[in-house]
Design a protein around this nucleic acid. Structure first.
Lengths: 193, 193
DNA sequence: TATAACCAACCGAATGATAGGTATGTGGCC
DNA sequence: GGCCACATACCTATCATTCGGTTGGTTATA
């Protein structure tokens, strides 16, 4: 891939991210994306062979950015939870990213959706990572023994994602970042041995 | 409206609910809904003048069923929270209803979506209702004074909705009802004066 | 009781827009 | 010269919606 081609792909991914976030997978149109990148539709499909592949590429692109910015898996105990609250803080300043995630994972509950595999994988990875954090917190004496790490991880993820949806629908009423941090703080306090 | 017409409308609403749940608003097609109701597309549009109106009718239809089944607003304190856990129990046996809600509120984060007003209204009503429950719990001496009723309500709704999405995407790993009840029980225990 | 008027409940066909995707060609950079 | 990065042109499918009708039953009137 040439330098020019590479730059174009980045452009396409950025625009497609916005369009998918705005309209969902089904609602987004290749024609509109192409127009915004100043390309013909066929030209767009030269870079990504189908709409489905474009979505997958966008999701991977987003995941890659996230992983680079926050290395959650390497943290343990309360520190991991606080870092997750940092992620939410960051997201609160990036409504586009949150909206992409929210719209796509809403659509992707259907098994045949092209984003389904991604959503499933993301949940499992995040759940495993947070469950580890709870367990390592126990080992470190930070959290009381006997906690249900998987259930706590599920709750944490549900809280994060649920607040995102609420915040997107009603941004004036819902202070996502503050509420999430409040939950995390209460959780840490409640788990002390 | 004739008896026959009324029955037809009910049929349409039931089928449309499934289709919107399956494919979202944008992904659903009037042609397919009409086909399943054994009606021409024009015949379908005789009963509901546009796709948008059909969606709104479906959402209202679902809300009405819910309201009839669970009268959340009249309950107070811990009782209201436990009743919400009952709702989640019930939902766990009705994946279609949960999916409708999940898909539509995912799509409806965009302001111009025909379900946006519904989603906004639903959040605000539910938040007010649950915040009241927390406050009345304080008055009854069930919960400690000084709690942030609105924030707790937001958390509760986020938890419920977030778990629904997780459950739909990964039903084998996520036991929505149990996890939610666990959260509610912990919450009630943690709020004791 | 017969009939005229009306209306809900449809249907078939057509509309214009838009969808994703393909086949074929071409200009420019390495 | 060869390949990457496109464009033009085109295809078929599907979309929501509209129009102009036809039924069959109900209601009001004479």
């Amino acid at each position: 891939m040439s330098r020019r081609g590479y730059a174009r792909r980045e452009r396409i991914l950025a625009v497609a991210l916005q369009e998918f976030a705005e309209n969902g997978y089904r609602g987004a149109s290749l024609a509109r994306i192409a127009e915004r990148v100043e390309l013909s539709q066929a030209g767009l499909l030269h870079h990504f062979k189908s709409k489905e592949r474009l979505l997958v590429a966008v999701l991977e692109y987003r995941d890659e950015m996230d992983t680079r910015r926050f290395d959650l898996a390497s943290l343990r105990g309360a520190e991991a939870l606080r870092r997750l609250a940092d992620v939410v803080d960051y997201n609160a300043r990036m409504p586009g990213l949150v909206q992409l995630f929210s719209v796509i994972s809403g659509e992707a509950v259907t098994g045949d959706h092209p984003g389904h595999a991604w959503a499933l994988e993301r949940y499992r990875r995040l759940r495993a990572s947070m469950a580890d954090a709870f367990r390592s917190g126990v080992e470190a004496g930070e959290f009381r023994a006997g906690l249900d790490a998987e259930a706590l991880a599920d709750r944490l993820i549900a809280m994060m994602d649920g607040l995102q949806t609420q915040w997107l629908i009603d941004p004036e009423q819902v202070d996502m970042a503050t509420i999430f941090r409040g939950y995390v703080d209460d959780l840490i306090a409640g788990l002390r041995p």
